[in-house]
Design a protein around this nucleic acid. Sequence first.
DNA 1: GTCTATATGTTGATAGAC
DNA 2: GTCTATCAACATATAGAC
Lengths: 202, 202
Amino acid sequence: MASATPTPAARRGRPGYDQEQMLEVIVKVFTDHGYDAATLELIAKRLGLSKSAVYHHFDSKSAMLELALEQVLGALEAVFTAPEAVTGLASERIEFVVNGAVRVACERQLALQLLLRLHGNSEVELKAMERRRGFDAKLKQLFELALTEGSLRADFDPGLAERFTFGLINSLVEWYRPGGRFTPEEIADAVLRFLRSGLTTP
Amino acid sequence: MASATPTPAARRGRPGYDQEQMLEVIVKVFTDHGYDAATLELIAKRLGLSKSAVYHHFDSKSAMLELALEQVLGALEAVFTAPEAVTGLASERIEFVVNGAVRVACERQLALQLLLRLHGNSEVELKAMERRRGFDAKLKQLFELALTEGSLRADFDPGLAERFTFGLINSLVEWYRPGGRFTPEEIADAVLRFLRSGLTTP
DNA sequence: GTCTATATGTTGATAGAC
DNA sequence: GTCTATCAACATATAGAC
């Protein structure tokens, strides 16, 4: 497995895929049909290769899934461990995290959809789900802090606030389209506006 | 197929399942593992029956899915066609629909999760997804009306408002637990409070 | 790196006895 | 209405030539 030819520009073989380009196609097939329903035959067809040629680049189907999930898990981890997420006022840390998570949701939309629809059917899925729960827990802690700071409304449970916030962000994978009516920045602004003061007129 | 013994209490055979009780178990297996990964062997095992006995009650795996999806699609259709949803102020119609959808999300949680994770891999899935899109369109129309009535903030696009609202409601399937910390009524109240004025203090 | 062929297991669904 | 036995199709993955 793993071509990993250090050669920057030149590449032999026919289609000239590197693993990352292949993975992009694979993730599309995974999200179009669902991981379980996506067959290696279809993946191979979309790549213009035979099944065994695909196996030259990836060890197994679940290895493809693991690499795809790492794209979004790694990006989210970067957001939650950034300096702006670990110091300062809870309200500002929340805004930073929400902003970053929206950006990740848009940039890694398909991989995030994959993550959100896992069922824990394998070790790879279970580990990814656990990492995801870690993000939930961290945002919940921030809302608990916000409650003591007075920046979360007293009539809102921190756990509920966390669920609502991630529910909102995660739902982006359902409808966001790159190059569509809304840019990731506009969406992040709208989400923050929503968190701050709702949808309806006072 | 279809036992449908009109006898109210008495029932022969061993486990005494009627189709609806069986479907409840099946929906649980579908949501636990995902529709595609859920095998008929596992379903049969959970029901304490053989595979062929299961086939006596259901024509096919996709027929089980269709019946499960009807549970939530029918309930949502009832909400959107209720008198309170089709007449009156847009803001009040929206509140009614949100309230009803939250209730459905809690009462038909597993079936809704099934609906939300469809990929369109079969005719059954495609038809269900189309009905779901109908609900999206109807709520969007209500937000468009609310905008002209002035009850939706002018800085919010109606389409965005609809996406956010359903995103919030649909995310309930991820964490709501019957008998848990929050009742459906409390959740509906919190969702409406969120829509009205956000999470944070002014 | 890619291919054709194949191994090996699993799946949804059926046949037919009781 | 339930069972055991079985099928044909399809799945992931491998072998080995080029």
